Computed example of a mutant assay.
Amino acid sequence: MSKARWHILREGDRLTVARRVPVRWDLAVQTTLPDAGRLRIAQQVRQDMWRALQDLRGFAPVVQVTRVDGVLQVKAGGAVAGAVAREKLEAEISEVLNCPKRRARWLRHAQHKRVAA
């Protein structure tokens, strides 16, 4: 089985990690984090979101991290094939984004070896 490929799109202060391009946002949740390595944050959020929603068929995750005024605005969600309970899925993504243990881990990981992304 071949390794899944993820697209990394850089546009100024915005970095997007997506399963498919063009990026499509059928559902999305946002949060703010302290400034850290955008790519590392995006990859950690994507990984945790993917684990939480791994049984959702046709899900193409997207995580967008934008540096604004010294903080990171994180948008997580993506495209879903077929009819889904959008509010329920957004609640699950929100749980991932707002979990204090995950947030602390993401920041530790992103600040351990800060990359310029």
Rank of each mutant, 00 (worst) to 15 (best):
K88Q: 08
A83H: 14
D26V: 05
K88E: 08
Q73F: 11
K88L: 07
L27K: 04
W50G: 01
Q73E: 12
L72C: 13
L97F: 08
Q30N: 07
V63P: 05
A60P: 08
L33Q: 02
R51W: 01
K88V: 11
I41T: 12
D35Y: 13
E87P: 15
N98H: 14
V80Q: 07
R40C: 05
A42T: 06
D69Q: 00
V80D: 04
D35F: 13
E87F: 15
I41E: 01
V63K: 02
D35A: 10
L53V: 12
K88W: 12
R46F: 00
V65K: 01
T66S: 05
D35K: 15
V62K: 06
L39G: 01
A76P: 03
E90D: 09
S94L: 13
Q43V: 12
R57V: 15
N98V: 12
R38E: 07
L53T: 10
D26S: 05
Q43S: 09
G77K: 10
M49L: 14
S94N: 13
L72T: 08
V84P: 07
R67I: 10
R38C: 05
A28G: 02
A85W: 15
R51D: 07
G58K: 12
Q73V: 15
P100W: 00
W50C: 02
A81L: 15
V96D: 03
F59H: 09
Q47H: 06
T31R: 03
L72N: 06
N98D: 11
Q44K: 03
M49T: 09
V65Y: 02
G78A: 04
P61F: 10
V80I: 14
G82P: 10
E95N: 06
P61M: 10
D35S: 11
V71P: 05
A42D: 04
P34W: 10
L53A: 11
A83C: 08
G70Q: 13
T32S: 12
Q73S: 06
A79V: 03
